[in-house]
């Protein structure tokens, strides 16, 4: 499924990386531990997390993730958004908590 379908169906706010929405999504991974995502996230996964600091951009870029969904509408600092934009990393945001957005995404991908 394309990232754009997910954005539309889950009403995600796209904060950076508008140009990558045609990328294919292979699944999702939920974790707030960065080493865990480095170890167990898969290429093309959407990463659901509450982390919003600069290092999430490097994790997503190094792992070729499809994008990051920030939960609970947690604010993302401008420097993080700028870095994400320049590294072509897609950051999206939802008001929902991780459990709820993950449930919806699971249904969308596997339903």
């Amino acid at each position: 499924m394309k990232l754009s379908n997910i954005v539309e169906n889950l009403s995600l706010e796209v904060k950076t990386g508008e140009n990558n929405l045609q990328n294919d999504v292979t699944g999702a991974y939920i974790s707030d531990l960065l080493s865990d995502v480095m170890a167990n996230g898969k290429e093309g996964n959407v990463w659901i997390t509450l982390q919003t600091h600069l290092n999430i951009v490097a994790v997503s870029g190094l792992k070729n993730l499809a994008g990051i969904i920030i939960v609970n509408n947690r604010p993302v600092q401008e420097d993080v958004l700028q870095k994400a934009e320049s590294e072509k990393v897609t950051i999206m945001s939802t008001p929902l908590p991780a459990f709820e957005i993950a449930g919806k995404l699971y249904q969308l991908l596997n339903g």
Partner: peptide
């Protein structure tokens, strides 16, 4: 709190 410190770094390197 930044999500580092899971104690997986050295094992990840080795793996």
């Amino acid at each position: 709190e930044m999500g580092w410190g899971a104690g997986m770094g050295l094992p990840n390197m080795k793996k």
